[in-house]
Design a protein around this nucleic acid. Structure first.
Length: 422
RNA sequence: CGGGGUGUGGUGUAACGGCUAACAUUCCUGUUUUGGGAACAGGCGACUCCGGGUUCGAAUCCCGGCACCCCGACCA
């Protein structure tokens, strides 16, 4: 994409109404726009990051048998009354609205009911199980206090997968697969080294659950990590019994702050009972389906990446989620140089390299560099009078201070050798 | 929901109760410039969050509301 066509611009000043690092950088660099507390719009650059994250998650979910669908944002009162979660006395963060004809609808704040209600129509026999439907959707929660930029919003985009299994054993097999898939996701998203599988409370559904906690001071949870084993315990279940069951020793645990980037837990028959979600086994007996829940907030994941991967100049995107792979800068207004930059841009496009081309004229070199650092694309290529005099183009990684000059014809090879997928 | 803080051009800030609300940035015009947020000149842009009140006079003081940020509570 040509940067001269990109409608967003970077800002020099940090927003006065944001303290959190993720919001500050994402707003300054033009990835998101704040609409109100806890509500953000995703601009072209930000949406590209979300799509990258979405694709990673999609691949990992499909790999363990997930089937993507799209459930409606609108939630039916009757469906939720079955599970007892319609009442505001039970769930206090519903967004609800009246229908013209007198009825009421709610906006999804979670998805168990929606999935269970749909699957009830299709699950009759043991032959129909197991199944793993999931969706990406916008979720709405009337938080009393949203905070920390895009880490806790009133509206957020998430992936929710629900597992429907015949029995505990089958459920457990999938649960372990999901754990690994989640590990892969955070690894691929560039924060695997900071993310710990964390033993946590199961809330109202089950005794325990597993969270994926990424270490950052911006986190909301206190966790106790065992760095060697790579696992952690959430403060809420930090007790002798849990430590013993996990074979963890108190002396080896370190207290840290973490942000929950993913959460998986067993639902048992919590929802299959009220929805009468049963199947007939081989003996013709009716059995309740065993469910599990697996969620990831994409915006929160994006915000977490920014929280942990940046420097004083801006964001440092991992290649896998960066809006573009390469940031191509042309300096000066020399016709020949502009033409050469244009040719390179076209060639990169032909090779399917995702490139943001800073083709803006009348923008100083310093400003282009500053913008490039702020936006945080992992590879930067500069074409200028100087680079051509030195024999070609300068290519530099965002995380490094010095670039190298390469000949034009070698550029693609270099990019490949540096691990850019094209 | 409890506590604390802040609301001024698009953005970031300034202004003792007293001149036409100032500066920077963004944006527009022009000239010059192009390897780390360039220089000069000119210009556009504000019912100072909203509603009341005090005062000769309010961005400034008082009351109420709203919004935003932070701490806590809450967080399927």
């Amino acid at each position: 994409m040509r940067q001269s066509h990109l409608f967003t611009k970077t800002k020099k000043e940090s927003p006065s109404d944001e303290v959190s690092l993720n919001a500050e950088l994402l707003i300054k660099a033009g990835f998101i726009n704040k609409e109100m507390a806890g509500v953000y719009s995703y601009l072209p650059l930000g949406l590209r990051v979300i799509k990258k994250i979405e694709n990673i998650i999609r691949e990992e979910m499909n790999a363990i048998g997930g089937q993507e669908m799209k459930t409606s944002i609108f939630q039916n009162k009757e469906t939720w009354e079955k599970s007892g979660r319609w009442s505001d006395d039970v769930v206090d963060n519903w967004f609800k609205t009246k229908l013209k004809n007198g009825g009421e609808v709610g906006l999804s704040f979670t998805n168990e009911e929606a999935h269970a209600n749909i699957l009830k129509q299709y699950i009759n026999s043991y032959k129909d199980l197991p199944v793993y439907p999931y969706d990406f959707k916008d979720i709405f929660r009337n938080e009393t206090r949203s905070k920390s930029g895009i880490l806790r919003g009133r509206e957020f985009y998430w992936k929710a997968l629900y597992s429907f299994s015949k029995d505990e054993e089958e459920h457990n097999v999938f649960y372990e697969k999901a754990k690994l898939a989640y590990k892969n996701i955070f690894q691929r998203a560039g924060i695997g080294h900071l993310t710990y599988l964390t033993f946590a409370s199961g809330g109202t559904f089950s005794k325990f659950s597993h969270e994926f906690q990424t270490l950052t001071g911006a986190g909301e949870d206190t966790i106790y990590i065992d760095e060697n084993k790579g696992i952690a315990i959430n403060q809420e279940v930090y007790n002798d019994e849990v430590m013993e069951s996990l074979e963890l020793k108190k002396e080896e645990l370190v207290e840290k702050r973490g942000i929950e980037v993913g959460n998986i837990f067993s639902l048992g028959t919590k929802f299959s009972e009220p929805f009468d979600l049963k199947y007939k086994n081989q003996n013709g007996e009716e059995k309740l389906v065993i469910m599990g829940s697996y969620g990831i907030g994409l915006g929160r994941l994006m915000g977490t990446i920014v929280e942990v991967l940046s420097d004083d100049k801006g964001i440092i995107w991992p290649e896998t989620v960066s809006p573009f792979k390469v940031h191509l800068l042309v300096l000066g207004n020399d016709e020949k140089i502009l033409e050469e930059a244009n040719n390179l841009y076209e060639n990169l496009l032909l090779k399917d390299v995702e490139v943001l081309f800073d083709d803006r004229v009348d923008v100083s070199a310093g400003e282009k560099f500053a913008d490039s650092d702020l936006i945080g694309i992992p590879y930067r290529i500069v074409i200028s009078k100087r680079s051509l005099a030195d024999g070609g183009y300068e290519i530099k990684k965002r995380i490094e201070d010095k670039g190298v000059i390469v000949k034009g014809e070698d550029l693609l090879d270099i990019i490949v050798s540096w691990g850019i997928k094209i």
